[in-house]
Amino acid sequence: MSTQVTEQETETEEQSSHQRRRLEEKAERAASRDRMRERAENDLDEADTTFTLKVFRYDPEIPEKEEPRFDTFEVPFTKGMTVLDSLMYARDHYDSSLTFRHSCRQAVCGSDALFVNGTQHLGCKTQVVDLGDDGGVPGEIRVEPLPHQEVVKDLVVDMEHFYDQMEAVEPYFDADELPDGMEEQRQTRENREKIKMSSRCIWCGACMSSCNVAAGNNEYLGPAAINKAYKFAMDEREGENRKQERLEIIEQEHGVWRCQTQFSCTEVCPKDIPLTEHIQELKREAVKNNLKFW
């Protein structure tokens, strides 16, 4: 398990003092690890309920960890615990090399989309009790990295492709003409309501990972990007020309038409964005845009 490099004997004074310090630091780290483990044992004794966290592990940089495998950690349940909390508990008490992304812990930053018990979930938004059968604490929770993305390490996946697709729809407000004498660009209430849900996306990538079509076709824009496009195409302040350009991006061969309405994305989106509905509406827009009766 240990990944530390074995210390080499050195001759000079300076080096040996350096080495002493390193050894001390190492001992300190080991001691703190032992303390944490002890704490965990206490916690486990005291806790009313515990559960097993089964976590996918993989590290291509270390020969012993190259083979993907599962590690299990016994975690004491505390009220209000989320899947992210339990991962952090495991990392802090058992194995500091356990790697996953997180930041805001309140479903805002979109860094911790994970594959929990076979579905895409946001770690910080998923209560442990919600994973049990009858609203209780489950015996085991299986956490894996998002499917259909390359794993960098443990639960961390490569998001580059997802970001590329998001960029491809030009996800920024870009009006044909700016109103003069006024810095604000007012939006009607109705129009704001229309794009409200689509503006909630936190770029977590859960939808893309759940999509069977996106998995088999790297050129497909994917639900999140199309939803982004929807947000701007439906924004009345941008003007006709811009909308036309946006529709052209949406209508391309690997745009909206690839969607086969499996509803997987809509089901997993942690921000409850009606993705399929938005994609379908854009399909209709695209048809209307191209239908001519003359």
Binding site: F56, P68, F115, G118, T119, E144, P145, P147, H148, V151, N212, A215, Q260, T261, Q262, F263, S264, T266, E267, T276
Partner: peptide, 20 residues
Amino acid sequence: RGLVEDFGRWREFSAGMWAW
């Protein structure tokens, strides 16, 4: 990644996926 991403996970499919 083995069963992480193939049809071996059919037990976890949702209604829309089955319909498809």
